[in-house]
Design a protein around this nucleic acid. Sequence first.
DNA 1: GGGTAATGTTGACAACGTACACATCGCCAC
DNA 2: GTGGCGATGTGTACGTTGTCAACATTACCC
Lengths: 218, 218
Amino acid sequence: MTTADRPYHHGELPEALIAAGLRLSRAGGSAALTLRAVTREAGVSATAAYRHFTDRDHLMRDTARRTRRALADTMLETIAELGTDLPPDAQAVQRLRGVGLGYIRFALDEPGWFDLAFSMPDDPSAAPSDRPGPFELLMDSLDAMVATGVLAPERRNGAEWACWGSVHGFADLVARGPLRDQERPVVDQLGRNVVESVIAGVVAGSLDGVRLRPDGSC
Amino acid sequence: MTTADRPYHHGELPEALIAAGLRLSRAGGSAALTLRAVTREAGVSATAAYRHFTDRDHLMRDTARRTRRALADTMLETIAELGTDLPPDAQAVQRLRGVGLGYIRFALDEPGWFDLAFSMPDDPSAAPSDRPGPFELLMDSLDAMVATGVLAPERRNGAEWACWGSVHGFADLVARGPLRDQERPVVDQLGRNVVESVIAGVVAGSLDGVRLRPDGSC
DNA sequence: GGGTAATGTTGACAACGTACACATCGCCAC
DNA sequence: GTGGCGATGTGTACGTTGTCAACATTACCC
């Protein structure tokens, strides 16, 4: 055909497809990221995407990685807003707080991107990013807590999963679960509770610190 | 047609469709619960389901409810295995522990059902079940902790979301996330950590109990 | 300048959800 | 009994999706 309006070759198709994917998923989540919708949006035939992505999953994974980068940005913004002029130990805790609150804020502000971000398992064979991702930010804050003495070293192991799970689970409740259409102030307050709880839980490690033995008896 | 082999009318079609949905989703998660696959499995034409369910979502919601019932059963089994001959206050904590560990166990043992269970938002207009669901079991255990004095009443509010989020998030990490193909013993240990952390966090409420002020300073 | 690989298009296929018209059956009124 | 009517199941069809194979166009390098 080639109506001479658009050149036959796009030139920047991979980037254009990902950009279209970001637009679509922002509004409609991972389900809206359709191969045909994305190519339509880019003004290209449906099968053109196969020259740059092996299949739909490939495009989704690459697009999801971008949304995770946006999540990391939100975390960093949240950390900055919380303030940075604290003594090192308190600053380390503050960073963990920012990681958690930023995660929840992202899920609330960008539910479509949040859905996409974790609907795809990240393949470990991907090129490493220059900037730290959400998970690296979490690890760094926990390491800093150990380094400054706030977190006992023997409690560091596995702490990332307790933190990530807590915040991710709550964000999921808010984005897709029973807390879906709660008022924003209510959700914000609950989110603060969750973050404070998990920080306390990770630091305390078990009920030992609060008058209970490990088996649950008092 | 009616080859006289099968009668024209199935008789128990709604139940048969849900049973087929449970079989399919058990192996392939929510994506495998296809209207056509379910009707095929039941030996019935593709559109027969529309006589009993308004659309695919309706069938999925009803099937998902069954998987949530199975989850509640796993929770109760786990509570029973942990032992029931404890003083009331310790027993209340033990029940919370069983709720959390049962949730994680279910996600590990039945990843397909777990995926389906929470892929659909539950509609509040459904008929209430006779047996308590997963959420009721959680609420009951927290209430018992308040009643026996283990949990301060002022910390009861919102505690269910911190607990649910923690455990749900961790289960999601294990079922679909980066912990997807970890060894079972490792995951079990991490799961115990998560549950102990969240219990400690809910009881402690904030870092107050462990030498830190709310703003994070020491 | 001509050949080759990269890139984009067309057409097709199977699977999906779903609407519509039609077939078959249980059951109740007469 | 027997008619008819509502409930239940079937067949066909349409539009959408992911994906493959064959073909068209272009960039680029010898």
